[in-house]
Design a protein around this nucleic acid. Structure first.
Length: 180
DNA sequence: CCCTGATTCGC
DNA sequence: GCGAATCAGG
């Protein structure tokens, strides 16, 4: 859809400004807009001249910069590791609107018992290491995310990861309830 | 250990 | 201009 190299488009910059001024952390913003790391967000924020936001004493530009002249730059190839333990499906069983739109009274009770409602979080509170399993309709104000502790490297908590990445063999018993 | 922003500097 | 690496701190 968007260009291959999605840089800082005006739209993305606007979102960045909004969220930043809104008090979100760099990592939160990075997770929200996606495609960028928190470092990228911070870097952009500074370049835009934003920063400090609204802190009482900005501590001035204290912090002398005694960085190290000789930077230890690896510049070497990074080893990659294989991972074929779990069967990841291209698309998690549609966790989005479809599955989550309706109250999760499906066969996967795992989803419900996973966390108390009081623990759901909004996009504002969603953080990098929080489960991004959608709860409800994204267009409604009631929309929330699971918010549980996500598995490192995955966007979901252990419970939702199981639901999302079911081995092709094991799933299929949920189908019966889907037809409506 | 989790996280935060700040800064430098190679690209 | 960009952002990874790094730093400094909570």
């Amino acid at each position: 859809m968007t260009d291959a190299s999605v840089g800082w488009t005006d739209e993305r910059v606007e979102v960045l400004k909004k969220l930043w001024s809104d008090g979100l952390s760099a990592s939160q913003i990075a997770a929200e807009i996606g495609g960028v790391t928190r470092n990228a967000v911070i870097g952009k924020v500074h370049r835009l001249g934003l920063s400090g936001r609204s802190k009482s004493a900005p501590v001035a530009a204290a912090a002398p910069r005694p960085r190290k002249p000789s930077a230890p730059r690896p510049a070497g190839p990074v080893a990659e590791e294989d991972e074929d333990e779990i069967i990841l499906r291209p698309e998690p069983i549609a966790p989005a609107v479809e599955a989550a739109a309706a109250p999760v009274y499906m066969d996967n009770r795992v989803v419900e018992i996973a966390l108390p409602l009081s623990q759901r979080v909004t996009i504002m509170d969603l953080r990098e290491s929080m489960c991004r399993w959608p709860i409800g309709d994204p267009t409604n104000p009631e929309f929330r995310f699971c918010g549980g502790r996500s598995i490192t490297g995955l966007p979901y908590c252990p419970e939702h990861a199981q639901v999302a990445y079911q081995p092709a063999a094991d799933r299929r018993r949920d189908r019966k309830l889907m037809r409506a």
